[in-house]
């Protein structure tokens, strides 16, 4: 099937509720005190359509709902109200290292993390050499991960994610990883994604980066869309109302 020019992400009246923690943190409390839940709406009535190949930036202050929106798009969580229609394979690089186990070697972790990101074992085997070369950490790749520096872990993590097949990529904040050398490599890889017909949704505070890479920006505040439009227009208003950063 070809979804050219059709929506890959469609959210209709999506709302997401979180209960404040410690309400039923324990069963004994639940029976003694009962449940008094205080809801907090992280997203309120979001309507959103993203077309195939679009590069969309998400901006807004901390706690605006950016991460919640990204989790819904990547299918990690589901909304309490509204409907979500996602087409194609979405991968999220919200936290690169989440799937690693420090007791396992680099290669073992490449397989594990790749499979968590939805790759097949066969697919990883085929790309293993490329992934290892891109990470470029030499003989460490056979060593258990507890011997790695933070930067080396990030290199492996980024390399796995970068060689994964996807239609839509969801990125949160940290785009550039590792030392200068690897930053160049990872940025050029990200640019490669941007130049292909891949859909990208990215939440970041780097407005410069968005101006260079995205056509469209969505500004979130308090769980609502403040403005959704062309990058220059939205960022101009955002800067005007928030002061220059």
């Amino acid at each position: 099937m070809n979804f050219t020019n059709s929506n890959v992400v469609k959210l209709q009246r999506v709302s997401k509720k979180y209960e404040f923690a410690n309400i039923y943190s324990s069963l004994s409390e639940y029976f003694l005190v009962g449940s008094k839940s205080k809801p907090f709406w992280a997203l309120k009535n979001i309507n959103l359509e993203i077309k195939k190949g679009e590069k969309v930036g998400l901006i807004g202050p901390n706690g605006a709902g950016k991460t919640t929106l990204l989790s819904i798009i990547s299918g990690i969580t589901t909304p309490d109200k509204g409907c979500v229609d996602i087409r194609g394979k979405v991968i999220s690089i919200i936290e690169l290292e989440a799937g690693f186990h420090i007791e396992l070697s680099g290669v073992e972790n490449i397989f594990l993390n790749g499979m968590i990101l939805g790759m097949s074992k066969e697919g990883i085997k085929r790309r293993l050499k490329t992934i290892i070369n891109f990470a470029g950490i030499g003989k460490f790749i056979e060593q258990p991960m507890y011997s790695y520096s933070e930067g080396m872990k990030l290199r492996v993590a980024f390399s796995v994610a970068a060689h994964c097949d996807f239609d839509t990529l969801v990125l949160d904040e940290n785009i550039s990883v590792g030392d200068i050398d690897f930053q160049k490599k990872s940025l050029s890889k990200i640019r490669e994604f941007f130049s292909k017909r891949k859909t990208i949704v990215i939440a970041t505070h780097y407005l410069d980066f968005l101006q260079k890479t995205c056509e469209r920006v969505i500004w979130l505040n308090n769980g609502r869309i403040v403005e959704d439009g062309p990058v220059e227009k939205v960022i101009k208003r955002y800067i005007k109302e928030n002061g220059n950063i």
Binding site: S71, S74, G75, I76, V90, S92, I94, E95, A98, G99, I116, L117, G118
Partner: peptide, 9 residues
């Protein structure tokens, strides 16, 4: 929890 919150599987 770290893994569950960050990836869909």
């Amino acid at each position: 929890r770290l893994l569950i919150k960050k990836a869909k599987f």
